[in-house]
């Protein structure tokens, strides 16, 4: 199972982080979250610390999965953009490259039009990072060795110790 792990190193993490920060600023958003489709939180920007990001990530992935199921019922592959409008804050969700979920939280300092525009621009940038990440994983034997070295160092005792 775990051979499907998403592995992220410094270079990609920094590129994703700067893309999210740029998006947050240019869209005048309250906070931005990037989540994988299984509900794991990949990166954040803005006032993200004021929101339970782990919980938001699982719910965003659940929402995307559920609406994806509805899309299937009417013959669509997915609904790539979802919007939830609240009284004070709203959430705009974009599926990037059919694999990760960009969640933008915004209030009356911004507008849906501006958020949609900036989300579309950022999506292309983020999609490139993930495609390059795929290539890197496929091509870089060194990286695999690095991961392998780390995991081979985990002993049964290490695992037992986690549980006291």
């Amino acid at each position: 199972m775990s051979s499907f792990s998403l592995v992220m190193h410094d270079a990609e993490f920094e590129r994703i982080g700067s893309a999210l920060t740029e998006l947050c600023t240019s869209s005048r958003a309250f906070a931005v979250f990037l989540v994988d489709k299984n509900g794991q939180l990949i990166g954040t920007a803005g006032e993200s610390a004021r929101i339970d990001g782990t919980g938001l990530a699982s719910l965003a992935a659940g929402t995307v999965a559920a609406t994806g199921g509805m899309a299937g019922l009417i013959g669509e592959d997915e609904f790539s953009v979802l919007s939830h409008e609240g009284k004070r804050k709203s959430i705009h969700i974009t599926i990037v490259d059919s694999r990760v979920i960009l969640v933008i939280i915004f209030d009356d300092r911004s507008s849906l039009g501006l958020v949609r525009l900036r989300a579309r621009q950022a999506s292309g940038k983020l999609a490139r990072v993930f495609r390059e990440l795929d290539l890197k994983v496929e091509e870089s034997a060194n990286e695999d060795q690095m991961n392998e070295a780390f995991f081979s160092e985990i002993t049964d005792e290490d695992i037992d110790r986690l549980f006291g």
Binding site: M1, S2, F4, S5, L6, V7, M8, H9, D10, F13, E14, D36, N38, G39, Q40, I42, N147
Partner: peptide, 15 residues
């Protein structure tokens, strides 16, 4: 699909 982040040094798994 576990998520391994070498920058934040975190491993996340789904049960």
């Amino acid at each position: 699909m576990s998520f391994i982040n070498f920058t934040t040094r975190e491993i996340s798994c789904k049960i």
